[in-house]
Every structure is written in structure tokens, then in C-alpha cells.
């Protein structure tokens, strides 16, 4: 009887020890996560506060993280007084138009690559070539594109950016959409054909509705990439009429006296679409950013 009792208490102790260990281990993960999260978001938060602080608060030392009187003067300054409103509109127009063009042209090409067997193993070769154009350092094509645009007098126009961004986004669209098309079973299109639909009709009525989520994700990626793009915009547009938001922000930085408030206000607005998209896209992001190599 005694012997049994000691045995059960020993296992009780071991039981509670392991429960404790499990608790610590699990929460240790959260303990690591939280700082990582803060570390990722704190600088962005800091910038937001700068955009809302008066100049006095901005230069205060020690810097107030949470307690300060907010003001919208910098936002007014940036978007009404100065030309940031125009930069914003330019960014939006360029992003949307180039994404639209890239989607149309790219989806068609992606469909052909996914469904048709081309001779000379062109399917594979074309795909690899398209992938490689994505790998070019931007500066390599930026310099000649500047000269080319200058030659056709398209410098400092929105059109030049739209054209370049379409070309910029195209490889990505083709790569992503090809994956989505390949995931779709051939059966469905064949059934549509046998049912009497034309190839185009099958594409519109059967294929497109089914790749719609993939299409939406690709579109959002392209919008983000176009919205964020800096180098080509910097090289191709230097006038207020044609500058995009990133170029406008950078312009303030290289100036004599840096207006931090204006700059952070503009930057804070610039990231709004990003934050929205990030929440929506987070499921597809890993797949998109790793060029489909890893399915998140």
C-alpha cells in the first residue's frame, strides 16, 4: 500500500514538471514573437508620430513616444500647399494603368505557356528567359531607357512610366499566372469544348472565374511593386507634373533643409495602400515573393 503511494506522488511531480515545461516552452515562443513584432512595427510607428508632431515635439529630447499633442499641419502642408497631392495622383494612375496592361498581356501569355505545347521546348525556355529578365539589376536598363525615352521625347511624362512599369511587371504576371493556370485541371476546359463552347468562350466562362483569386493576388502585387518603385521614376521623371510619390519624398530628402514633418506625412500616406494590401494578401505573399518556389 505504502509502496504504491510513493510511486504515484513521484509521477505526479513529474507530471506537473512537464506541464510547467510545456507552458514555458510555448510561451517562450510568444516571448520571442512579441519583440520581433514590435521591432518590425516600431520604426513605422515612429515615422507616423513624426508626421503628427509639431516641430517642437519632433526635436524634443528625450523623444516622446506616446504623449504629445497631434497636429495635421504637415499633412495639409504636404498635400495642399505643396505638390504631394499631385504626386499621389500620378502614382495612382501609373500603378493602376501599368498593372492593367501587364495583367492583360501577361495573362494571355501565361495561358499559352501553360496550355499549349510549343516546339523546341519553348515552354521551358521562354519561362526561364522571362524569369531572368526579372533578375536584371534595375540600373542596367534604367540608363539606356533614359536615353531611349529622351530620344522619343517621353521624358518627364506619365506615359514613359506606364510603359516601363508594364514591362517591369510583365515577367512577374506571367510567372504567377502560369502557375495558377497549370494548377487548373485540363478536364474542365475540355468538357467546355465538348459541350460546344469555343476556345475563347471556355476561357472566359470557365477558366477566368476559377483563376480569379490568383488574378486578384497578382494584381495587388503589381500595384504594390509599381506604387513602391523608385529608381525608374527617379531617372525618368523630374518635374512636378510627372513625379511619383516616392520621387517626391526623396526630393525633400536631398534638399538643403529637410522638412521632416512634410516628408513623413507624405510617406505615411504612401504606405496606406500597402498596409491594406498586406492584410488582404498575406496568404499569397510568400508564394508571390519567392516566385512560386515555395507555396505559403
Amino acid at each position: 500500500m505504502n509502496h504504491k503511494d510513493t510511486k504515484s506522488t513521484k509521477s505526479d511531480k513529474q507530471g506537473s514538471l512537464s506541464v510547467l515545461r510545456v507552458f514555458v516552452v510555448n510561451n517562450f515562443r510568444y516571448a520571442l514573437l512579441l519583440p520581433a513584432l514590435l521591432f518590425a512595427l516600431a520604426p513605422v510607428y515612429w515615422m507616423l508620430t513624426i508626421s503628427l508632431k509639431t516641430e517642437v515635439d519632433q526635436f524634443a529630447s528625450p523623444p516622446p513616444w506616446f504623449v504629445f499633442t497631434p497636429t495635421l499641419e504637415h499633412y495639409y502642408d504636404a498635400f495642399v500647399t505643396r505638390a504631394f497631392g499631385q504626386y499621389l495622383i500620378t502614382s495612382a494612375i501609373v500603378a493602376v494603368t501599368s498593372t492593367g496592361c501587364a495583367l492583360i498581356i501577361g495573362t494571355m501569355a501565361a495561358y499559352a505557356l501553360a496550355r499549349f505545347q510549343l516546339p523546341w521546348s519553348l515552354n521551358r525556355r521562354l519561362s526561364l528567359w522571362i524569369l531572368s529578365t526579372r533578375m536584371f539589376p534595375a540600373i542596367v536598363t534604367a540608363v539606356p531607357l533614359f536615353l531611349m525615352m529622351r530620344d522619343v521625347r517621353l521624358l518627364n511624362t506619365r506615359a514613359s512610366l506606364i510603359i516601363v512599369y508594364t514591362a517591369f511587371n510583365l515577367p512577374f504576371v506571367i510567372w504567377m499566372m502560369r502557375g495558377f493556370f497549370a494548377d487548373l485541371p485540363r478536364d474542365l476546359e475540355e468538357a467546355a469544348l465538348v459541350d460546344g463552347d469555343s476556345r475563347l468562350g471556355a476561357l472566359v466562362r470557365v477558366v477566368l472565374p476559377l483563376v480569379a483569386p490568383g488574378l486578384a493576388a497578382t494584381a495587388m502585387f503589381c500595384l504594390i511593386i509599381s506604387w513602391n518603385e523608385f529608381l525608374f521614376a527617379l531617372v525618368l521623371t523630374q518635374t512636378d507634373a510627372a513625379m511619383t510619390l516616392p520621387v517626391g519624398i526623396a526630393g525633400r530628402v536631398t534638399q538643403y533643409e529637410i522638412k521632416w514633418g512634410v516628408m513623413s506625412a507624405a510617406a505615411s500616406v504612401a504606405i496606406v495602400p500597402i498596409l491594406v494590401f498586406a492584410l488582404v494578401l498575406q496568404k499569397y505573399l510568400v508564394r508571390g515573393l519567392s516566385m512560386g518556389a515555395v507555396k505559403g
Partner: peptide, 13 residues
């Protein structure tokens, strides 16, 4: 699409 045949696929499609 013009052959006017109907097909039942193995996967039903």
C-alpha cells in the same frame, strides 16, 4: 465544339 458529341469524363469535370 462542332462535333455535337457529349462526353462524361472520368473525373466528371
Amino acid at each position: 465544339q462542332h462535333r455535337d458529341l457529349a462526353m462524361v469524363f472520368q473525373s466528371y469535370a
